[in-house]
Amino acid sequence: MKELKVDPIKNGTVIDHIPAGRVQRVLAILKPRATDVVMMGMNFSSKAMKKKDIIKIEGRELTQNEVNSIALIAPAAKVSIIRDFKVAQKSRVEIPKRIEGLVACPNPKCITNAEPMMTIFNLEDCSTRDLACQYCERVFTADEMTHI
């Protein structure tokens, strides 16, 4: 039998295949509520990624929007919704075409860093994960972004 390093959950969400070392950043985006039961695994061995991180959230089903918001830092993540210990739904994360208010513009001269306003980025290229700032028009890779 396969050894389980983390207890299975009854109802909730499992996010697997997070790049090793990024689990805390994923959690920072998902902002668990004070009462959420969260299990966090780091540096699990993985065939595809060698090492990976994993998160299980008990009692909360993430929406597709919430799931997509982690796509910038965990592009290969797989998300399973668990109901009564069984996988009810599986999905991959997808970077949205338009990302609003989620990440800061890395350009210090961008107006979004000077005025009380929302950032908007448009996905230029899915394969390279290039994002163009709607305002300063500069293009950045997803890895350059910091979440707000």
């Binding site: 001269k109 107006i111 979004t112 860093n113 000077a114 700032c133 709607q134 305002y135 300063c136 028009e137």
Partner: peptide
């Protein structure tokens, strides 16, 4: 305006036409 994207932002805030006469290095 010295900040890049300032004219785009203003154009989203007002109902009249906006002309960008230079927004920083953009």
């Amino acid at each position: 305006h010295p900040m890049e994207g300032a004219a785009r932002y203003v154009s989203e805030q007002v109902d009249i036409p906006v002309v960008n006469a230079g927004d920083g290095a953009n």
